[in-house]
């Protein structure tokens, strides 16, 4: 890296100006508006029954979705790295579908599949399980939109895993399950945790995929992003600002966590080489 290449002041200036106008100005305005509310009113808004319930529902369903993706995402990454089988490349490409598909499209598709007369909804209803208009539906929508995170963070680390450590463990007589738990899983843990945190963060803020399937009943199946939207529609700007700023704070906390996880990952990679 050196300064002999021209163009730094211009490109740096454009980047900073654009970020200030497009990203920092609006976020600053949001924080400014939220600070304007005052502490007591903020607490009153956040502890109101409907807000508190929305946060509880959102966190619980996001945990559920992340737990599903932790298992299924890991299995997907494992299959894509460790095995060869027909259709593997197609599966690899399909993993990106949830990122590529607009959330509103995913929302109506999932809602059609899981409605009482849908392909999945009808057999599930026979078993007495209803997904649409329940918290389970919210978790399904969150799991769908955040599925690629675990796969795409674990995949490269699993690929770089050297075979000799596993073989050494096998020659010492360890079983497959034991090698996975004691050798492989610790090696991929930082990447795995990063993927889970990224997916969880995405689930907390998800809107489009959820609102079609959730039923959106206050106190039951109303998520935080939707409640923010409703407060805006009601012109209750202080409540919207309080909730949105809280979500923003949670997003920053998760971002910090993810950065620390990535430092851990880099240190792990550094010592492994």
């Amino acid at each position: 890296m050196s300064r002999v290449i021209p163009g730094f002041p211009l490109s740096f200036g454009i980047t900073l100006l654009y970020l200030s106008l497009i990203v920092l100005l609006p976020l600053g305005a949001l924080v400014w508006t939220a600070l304007d509310i005052g502490w007591e009113r903020y607490i009153a808004i956040m502890t109101g029954a409907r807000t508190a319930s929305a946060f509880r529902v959102t966190f619980l369903t996001a945990f559920g979705a992340t737990a599903f993706n932790a298992v299924y995402g890991l299995a997907l990454a494992w299959v894509l790295v460790r095995y060869d089988f027909p259709g593997k490349r197609l599966l690899d490409a399909l993993v990106d579908v949830p990122f590529a598909l607009p959330t509103a499209v995913a929302g109506i598709a999932l809602s059609a599949l899981l409605a009482k007369n849908g392909w999945f909804g009808a057999p599930l209803a026979q078993l007495g399980i209803s997904v649409a208009y329940t918290p389970l539906g919210i978790a399904v929508a969150m799991a769908f939109t955040s599925l690629p995170f675990v796969v795409r963070t674990v995949q490269p680390v699993l690929e770089d895993l050297a075979a000799d450590v596993e073989e050494a463990a096998a020659t010492l007589g360890a079983s497959d399950a034991r090698i996975f738990a004691r050798v492989i899983f610790p090696a991929i843990l930082p990447a795995f945790a990063t993927g889970c945190a990224l997916g969880f963060a995405r689930s907390l803020g998800e809107f489009g995929a959820i609102i079609f399937i959730a039923g959106n009943l206050p106190l039951k199946t109303e998520v935080v992003s939707l409640l923010t939207f409703i407060r805006i529609e009601e012109y209750d700007y202080p409540a919207a600002a309080a909730i949105a700023a809280t979500l923003l704070g949670i997003a920053f906390a998760l971002l910090l966590t993810i950065n620390m996880l990535q430092l851990w990952q880099q240190r792990r990679m550094g010592t492994a080489d």
Binding site: G205, G208, T228, I232, A244, L247
Partner: peptide, 9 residues
């Protein structure tokens, strides 16, 4: 890292 809903608000 920011929910589109937050961006809109």
């Amino acid at each position: 890292s920011i929910s589109p809903i937050i961006a809109g608000v």
